Amino acid sequence: MKVFTARDLTQSHILDLKNKGLSIGLVPTMGALHQGHLALVKQAKQHNDIVIVSIFVNPTQFNNSSDLEKYPRTLEDDLKKLQSVNCDLVFTPTTEEMYDANEKAEIFDFDGLDKEMEGKFRDNHFNGVGTIVKKLFNITTPTNAYFGEKDFQQLQIIKKLVEITQQPVNIIGCTIHREADGLAMSSRNTRLSKEHRESAPFIYETLTQAKKLANTSTPSEVEKYVSDKFNNHHNLVLEYFSVANENDLKTATSFSNTQKQRGFIAAFAGEIRLIDNIALYELSN
């Protein structure tokens, strides 16, 4: 497994690989890797000749400087985990390598995808995501790129980014990986206190109940159910729960056989913000 920190060396090495006719799979990450990340790498290994993992904590997508500072950085452990799943190349640049001095996030027109849910609470977040992903695509020129469905809104926005920039990469969404108790795997989970870690599975429990309720209820009734459940929970604070259409992320007014919907949630466990989502649409078939 090769590890690069410089953009030019990474580009040169990848160009040599592509000149040999090899396909490239990219898994972009911010490190603090868990089994969900490794599952993306394994899936990429099945589809591509060479798999690259990028590890970069991207400053332009953080709204809170304290959150950026506290984001877990575990590079040595990350590299061991990637070695164990036969990753071919790791790109771990510094901030200075990726951004010029005083460089800001590029502004994109995501056709409103960035204004829903997360966009209402994290101003300019998706412009930061789009900026770094565009840079990573330009450096690594992947055939395929892999993103987890836990960040489903981000996944849709990355697909829109590729459409906007006309970058020749296929975006592949991968199933959410969960702990045994249902909590969606996240690098932020390591920052949960013991008490909040014990409470956090309530998020997925509530989502699964919402999924069942969608059989016989309207989206607004499902949203009220989730809100009421969290209002009665002493240890978790609901930021939002929204039933939205998958394609445009607009709030759903009804369940339909022709429109796929998901339930999207964000909640605080102490200072740690957790997100999750669940498919609802198959229940209306």
Rank of each mutant, 00 (worst) to 15 (best):
M98S: 05
A184G: 04
L161I: 02
R178N: 01
P201Y: 04
Q166A: 15
A252H: 12
N247L: 14
S242H: 07
L192V: 13
L136Y: 03
I158S: 06
D111A: 14
T74A: 12
K159Y: 01
E239S: 04
A39D: 12
R262C: 08
A214P: 03
L238R: 07
F268R: 15
N127V: 14
Q153C: 14
L40M: 03
S187L: 04
I139L: 09
N285E: 15
S254N: 12
L283E: 15
D114A: 15
T131D: 14
F4Q: 06
E69G: 02
G182H: 08
P59A: 05
R122P: 13
F152H: 10
G128T: 11
Q35S: 09
N64R: 12
P201A: 02
D151N: 13
V53H: 00
H234G: 12
K81C: 08
N235D: 12
N64H: 06
S186P: 08
S227P: 01
T74I: 06
L79G: 09
K2R: 13
L79P: 04
H177D: 07
A279T: 13
L15G: 00
A184K: 03
Q35V: 00
D16F: 05
D109A: 12
Q61P: 11
E97G: 08
K80F: 02
F137D: 13
I278D: 11
K104F: 00
C87T: 14
S65H: 08
N127W: 11
Y281I: 05
F110A: 11
R73H: 13
E69H: 07
F126H: 09
E246L: 10
D228A: 09
K150H: 07
K115L: 15
L26Q: 01
K150E: 09
N138F: 03
E223H: 02
G21C: 02
E116I: 11
T218L: 14
T190M: 04
S199D: 10
L161P: 07
H13C: 05
L155D: 06
A6F: 02
V129K: 05
L236N: 10
G173M: 04
V41R: 00
H13V: 05
Q209V: 02
L207M: 10
V53F: 00
P28A: 01
T60P: 03
A44R: 01
Q209L: 08
D77H: 10
L17I: 01
S220E: 06
P59F: 01
E282R: 15
L236G: 07
F202N: 02
E103K: 08
L155Q: 09
L22I: 04
G112V: 13
Q35G: 09
E198M: 04
K160Y: 10
G128P: 14
L68G: 02
I157N: 11
F241A: 12
Y281T: 11
T208A: 07
F147P: 08
F152N: 08
T141V: 10
L136T: 04
F137C: 08
S284L: 08
E116W: 14
G21N: 06
R73D: 06
F62R: 09
T206H: 08
T208H: 10
R273S: 10
A32G: 15
I52W: 00
T258C: 01
M30V: 01
N215C: 06
D100K: 15
G21Y: 01
K120C: 12
K18F: 03
S186Y: 02
R262T: 12
G119M: 15
I265Y: 12
V57Q: 02
S12R: 04
L82D: 00
H125I: 05
N257Q: 13
N189P: 13
R262G: 10
L236A: 05
H234N: 14
P28S: 07
